[in-house]
């Protein structure tokens, strides 16, 4: 009973650790690292699901009868690609954020945004007074 589920439990711990990194870090790059860990653990879940004890890789050859599930492998191949695509785009946005704000710390950016908004409203009230 325990042995049959132990694998899934480890995967869940990994998934949650990844999710925790995403939500708790203030550094944008580290958030993306967290996403990576989270997604990779989900891949592990799928592959665990497809494993058959005593099976072999799903390449047909003489002398084997039990093969692991090829479908989950295909799904995860696709998902890995999706993951790296997201990572690349996320990093590109991070780089642009750094160029615009000169920081990639979430709290600092939020502070600068609030400052910015205050300034904008201040300007518009001045304009309103003048007119």
């Amino acid at each position: 009973m325990i042995a049959g589920l132990f694998n899934y439990w480890v995967v869940i711990i990994l998934m949650m650790a990844g999710l925790y990194i995403v939500m708790s870090s203030r550094h944008l790059v580290k958030k993306i690292i967290g996403l990576n860990v989270f997604q990779t653990s989900v891949f592990l879940l799928f592959i665990s699901m497809g494993k058959i004890s005593g099976g072999t890789a799903p390449i047909i050859a003489d002398g084997f009868t039990a093969y692991s599930n090829p479908l989950t492998h295909v799904l995860i191949l696709t998902a890995i690609v999706v993951g790296v695509a997201t990572t690349a785009l996320g990093l590109a946005i991070t780089v642009r954020i750094y160029e615009a704000y000169d920081t990639v710390d979430e709290d600092d950016i939020a502070e600068m945004d609030i400052e910015n908004e205050n300034k904008e409203t201040a300007v518009s009230t001045v304009v309103a007074k003048n007119t």
Binding site: I47, G50, P58, S68, T72, L77, V81
Partner: peptide, 13 residues
Amino acid sequence: LDAVDVAFTEAAV
């Protein structure tokens, strides 16, 4: 876990 293709891709990516 016998997922050779996936292992290959994960290592490369």
